[in-house]
Design a binder for these strands. Structure first.
Length: 464
DNA sequence: GACACACAGAAGGTCTAGTG
DNA sequence: CACTAGACCTTCTGTGTGTC
């Protein structure tokens, strides 16, 4: 056993409980066992990060010795494909050790994640096709196999993941954000464009003194900045030529929140440019945004809520509606829920880090969903509570569109349900911000905003 | 120290094109 | 057919700062 897979050792490690919810345990066992049990391949011994265990814990495995990779492209994909169509019905292991390794990774992945037989076959075929004639030192370009696999409806993502795991993928896809940014910066004067690109890219990736911003935030900024930068490009070649008056004039046409964000984006750009010596002075200094008056949050009517509840006919829609309407959970928090966050035995759930009791309705809804999940995807390794046919073969969360699909077009969206729940609590509690903050773990200012709306509603009751 | 205001960013909703 | 990613617009939330 020394230096090789030891299922007994693995089992002993896995017999330790992993958390309050045991639903995940079989999957964890399966995945971790396969990570350890790599048949036919020697296992390297590594010391535990916490304790020195010189003769134990075979956790990482070796792969065929990989020389320094060179950009040696597959010369002729059609030829490669033809060679890939080898008849493997004799069940003999392939002679190429890279292909053997890839096929083992594929089998492991398929078993661990509960792939369908068809998906497993497709993945095997792809790898056979790509690696039958593979030789040490080659890198396989993503763009070289992408058109061929997509044309065949193959498991492109899984194939790419395995090549990446093996370290033989040359991912030449252009990042979506970079592509989008380039398109947005066209027709802008080079001196302005280049500095803006530098700033936005830095905000996107983050740096030693800059944390990475969400791409949606940056998209919002650029959408508002583009008309301003285009107008400046007609008369200027560089950011340092922009005066304070021009900055004021740039935000003058917009109003409300758009004006606010435009100024925030300009200020962010120029303050960075000033710090890095790109401009001599910051033209956005001392320009005030002005206060955007927050509106009064309005409660949903009984009819609106009824329509949404009736529309939620699928098990997953019921979970989203109940958690939003009863626990004021955000859709993103629901999508991020893991099985381990749910403790049906003790009737508790942890949403966004906050542990809370489950109501009877929530308990019943989640029980129904658990049954549905187990029935449809019994072998999935995805640790998320909410999964669908596509995410069941992976480990990621479902998309935000899927969460809203059944409620599309209805007045009471998940977000409205969440807000309505918090507003309702504010009305019932006599507009007490402390109570609201306690119940929903809200920031004090947010709680005050809700209670302010509640007070206005109590003074001027809604028509309904 | 309390408060109001300003700022910065995240996330929701919806639509469309593409993928498996 | 079910679903995702991306795009666009809108809205909500949390933190920082200036003033009294």
């Amino acid at each position: 056993m020394k230096g090789h897979c030891r299922p007994c050792w693995a089992q002993a490690q896995l017999d330790r409980p992993t958390g309050p919810n045991t639903m995940l345990l079989p999957y964890v066992r399966q995945v971790r066992h396969h990570q350890l049990c790599f048949a036919g391949m020697p296992l390297q011994r590594t010391a535990s990060p916490r304790t020195k265990a010189p003769e134990a814990m075979p956790v990482t495995r070796t792969r065929p010795a990989l020389p320094q990779p060179q950009l040696l492209l597959l010369p002729d994909l059609r030829r490669t494909y033809r060679y890939g169509m080898v008849d493997r019905r004799d069940r003999q292991p392939p002679t190429n050790e890279w292909l053997r390794w890839a096929l083992h990774l594929a089998t492991t992945m398929a078993e661990a994640r509960g792939f369908t037989p068809q998906l497993t076959r497709t993945l095997t075929r792809n790898l056979t096709m790509l690696l039958t004639r593979y030789v040490d030192g080659e890198l396989i370009r993503y763009s070289s196999y992408h058109p061929m696999l997509t044309g065949r409806g193959s498991s492109l993502a899984q194939t790419t993941e395995i090549l990446q795991t093996m370290g033989i993928l040359l991912d030449d896809r252009q990042p979506t954000f970079a592509r989008w940014l380039e398109a947005k910066l066209t027709d802008i004067a080079p001196g302005i464009r280049d500095e803006t690109r530098r700033r936005v890219q830095l905000m996107h990736t983050g740096g030693p003194r800059t944390r990475a911003r969400n791409h949606r935030t940056l998209r919002g900024y650029i959408d508002l900045l583009r008309p301003v930068l285009l107008a400046w490009s007609e008369h200027h070649d560089h950011l340092r030529e922009i005066t304070r008056n021009e900055a004021v004039a740039a935000i003058a046409p917009s109003h409300g929140i758009r004006r606010q964000i435009t100024l925030v984006a300009l200020r962010s750009l120029f303050s960075w440019a000033k710090r890095h010596g790109v401009v001599f002075a910051n033209p956005t200094n001392r320009i005030r945004v002005g206060q955007v008056e927050p509106g009064v949050l309005q409660p949903l009517t009984a009819d609106e809520i009824t329509r949404t509840v009736r529309a939620a006919t699928t098990p997953q829609a019921r979970v989203f509606v109940v958690l939003a309407a009863v626990h004021a959970a955000r859709p993103s928090a629901i999508r991020a829920l893991h099985l381990t966050d749910l403790d049906l035995g003790n009737r508790r759930i942890t949403i966004a880090g906050r542990n809370q009791p489950l109501s009877e309705l929530s308990h019943q809804t989640l029980l129904a969903w658990s049954d549905h999940r187990q029935l449809n995807w019994p072998n999935t390794a995805n640790p998320h509570l909410m999964i669908n046919a596509m995410t069941a073969i992976g480990t990621g969360p479902v998309s935000h569109v899927w969460a809203n699909t059944t409620l599309r077009g209805l007045p009471a969206s998940l977000e409205r349900l969440r807000i309505d729940r918090q507003l309702d609590e504010a009305l019932v509690s006599g507009a007490d911000p402390l109570h609201l903050s306690e119940v929903f773990d809200l920031d004090a200012k947010t709680a005050v905003r809700y209670t302010a709306s509640a007070r206005k509603l109590l003074e001027q009751p809604h028509e309904d």
